Each structure stands twice: as structure tokens, then as C-alpha cells.
Simulated assay, not measured.
Amino acid sequence: MTDYPSKKTMARQIAALLPMFLLGMLVSACNGSDSEAKSFSDANAALEDYEAFLRSVSKQKTLSNSELVSSVLEWKALDDSVTAAMFRDSVHTNRAVVDSTYFSLRDSITDKLTSLVDSRKRSFQDYLDFSLAVNRPRLDSLSNQLMMSAHRFYASMDSVPVFNMDNVSTIHRYEDILDDATRRGIHTKRDLFLFLRNEDRAFRSFLVHLPTLGGIPLAKVRDSSSALMKEMVELCQGDNPAFTTSEVVILLTMRNNRRLLQNALQCVNDINNRKVKGGDQAAAYLWMLLQPWISFDGFALSLMSEAQIGTLKILATETPKCVVKLGKPQFPIDTDELPSLLIKTTITNL
């Protein structure tokens, strides 16, 4: 039996997978709202408007996904204006009272919006549409150039064939690639991109044999990969770093995006081709299938190509079908409820 964390622990982990501190380093937030910013004469006037919004949203009994998006975008635009007014008016108001009123109203609004998520059944496509609309940051120009360059780099590897080997030989080859990178070390940009190129081919070759890897030890691949990722992070440290912190975070996030999407898509193919047995294997496949949904935040989405967003749309359609085909293995969260939980987590962390 696969030992999964509890439902409460899983919910906390989902919330923790929204690393907003990275966004502050790398991007300028962009909610995509067409709502105009409001200007208030003072903090009290702003809070009155905030309270009026709470009364308005409290009257709602149910919201479609598009209506939910509109309400959240309206709230965020208003919230920005209210906090700006509070900052400007900080000298002339009782700050403790103003802050207490603001946080009380904000909590009430988020509670109401999250309760409205449960007013209808939400799908993975609903979650994807919602997340793209309300929580997709806009990259600055330098980060965007790096992202486009990295997409071209990875696209060039799509035509590189996987290794024509059996499962055991493929894992040994994967281990050899990691061992070689460990011996050489990752010290320069050239070292990094050479490793990423070799690793990508090894990972795609690994996925071909996914249904048959249950009895093959994979700890060395896991541990060596983790150690090499630490070396990648260290490339932005020291007196003369090869990369900036932003560059390393972007490259690591894009690597993770690509691997999770490739892995989930391979799971869909294996499940549809009846290559997955029951029991622990079905449980493992369920986790791999759901991992992109739990892992991707607004920043990860901002680094995806249109093709990758297209893959997510395919996964949104196929995921519930595949869960049924797997026999709905035990999981700490009802998979039917997961899209709603993800939407509510996104709202709470905005």
C-alpha cells in the first residue's frame, strides 16, 4: 500500500507549492483584469467600498467558472486599490483599527469566494482556465528572453531519439550519465546545458519503460539527480556566478515543467494502452498523473509554451478518465474534489 500523507497535510502541501516569493524576484504581477483601479480619498472610504463588495458577493448563491474568474479579478483589483489607500492614509488614521477592519473584511471575502467554488462541480479544465486567468504573472523582458531561449533549447531535443535499450540497460545508462556529470561537475553555462541535454534524453528513455520499472532500484537516479540540482543552484552563488538567481530559478522551473508534463502524458498513454496493473502500480500512476495539477503554480504556468499549455488541456480531459480506468486507487483527497480544492487554494494564496 502506498503511504500517502493525510488530507490535511496534502492541502498544506498544495498551498506550499505556490512559492510567491519567487514571483517577487522575477516577475511583475499581472492579474489580467480589465477592472480600473479606484482612487479613494482616505482609508475609511476604501474600506467602505471593500465592505460593499463583500455584501455584493455574499448575495451570490452560485457562480459559473467565468463568473468566478470575474469576481476574483474584481476583488483583486479592488484589494490593490484599498491597500494603496491605506498606505497613503497611514498618518491620519488609527492604523490598528484600519488594519483589523481590512483583514477581517479580506478574510470574509476569501471565505465567501471559496465557498462559491463549492456551489458547482469543478473540473480540471475549470481549474486550468481559472489559474491561467487569475494567477499568471507576466515576465520581465530579460526573463522572457531567457524563457524563449530555453524553449528553443528544449524543442531542439524533441527530435533526439531515445535510447534503444531494455529497461535495465536504460537505467544503467541514465546512472552513467549522472555519474559522468557528477565527476565533471557543473561549473559553467556550457556544463549546465550539456548536462540538461544528456539528462533530457535519459529521462525520456526512462519514461518509455515506465510500466516495467517497479522492480528496478531507482534510488541512485533519484539521489544523483538531487545532488546535481544542488550544483545547479550553486551556479548563482559566489563572487563570479555563472548565472543570476533569476536565471537558475527559471531554468529549474522549466526543467520541472517539462518533466512533469512528459511523465503525466506517458501515464495517460500507458493507462489507455492497458499497460498498468492494479495495486501499488495503479496508486503510483495516479500520483504521477495528478502531480502536475498539484505542483504547477502561476509562475510555472508563465514559463510554459503554447504547446505545453495544449498538453495541460489534454491532461485536463484525460485525467478524470484515467482515474476511472485505474479503478480509483486510494488517495488522501477525493480526486473528484481536487479541482475545487486547487481553485480554493489559489484564491486563498492570491
Results as ranks from 00 to 15, higher is better:
D3M: 09
T9D: 12
T9C: 04
Q13L: 15
A16H: 13
L17M: 11
L23A: 13
S28Q: 09
N44E: 11
A45R: 06
A52W: 00
A52G: 03
R55Q: 10
Q60K: 15
S64P: 04
E67T: 02
L68P: 06
S70C: 00
S71I: 01
E74V: 02
W75N: 05
D79S: 10
A84E: 14
M86S: 09
F87T: 13
F87D: 12
S90P: 00
N94F: 05
A96I: 09
S100V: 05
Y102V: 05
S104G: 15
S104Y: 05
D107Y: 08
T110Y: 13
S115H: 08
S115I: 06
D118R: 07
K121E: 11
S131F: 01
L132P: 00
A133P: 01
L146N: 04
M147R: 15
M148H: 09
S149L: 11
Y154D: 05
Y154M: 13
S156R: 11
D158V: 07
S159Y: 08
V160D: 12
V160M: 10
V168E: 15
R173M: 13
D180H: 12
A181H: 10
T182S: 15
T188D: 11
D191V: 10
L196R: 10
E199Q: 10
D200S: 14
R201H: 09
A202K: 08
F206I: 02
L207S: 04
H209K: 03
K220C: 01
S226R: 13
M229A: 00
K230R: 11
E231K: 12
Q237D: 11
G238T: 08
A242M: 09
F243K: 06
F243W: 04
T245H: 10
L251F: 07
L252Y: 03
R255W: 04
L260Q: 14
Q262C: 03
L265R: 09
L265Q: 09
V268M: 02
V268E: 00
N269V: 07
K275C: 07
G278A: 10
G279M: 10
Q281A: 12
Q281S: 12
Q281P: 05
L286E: 09
M288K: 14
L289D: 05
Q291K: 15
P292L: 04
D297C: 15
F299W: 08
A300F: 03
S305N: 02
E306D: 14
E306Y: 03
E306R: 15
A307K: 13
Q308A: 13
Q308H: 13
I309L: 15
I314N: 07
L315M: 12
E318D: 11
E318S: 12
C322M: 02
C322Y: 01
L326E: 04
G327K: 07
F331E: 03
D334A: 12
D334R: 07
I347N: 08
I347P: 08
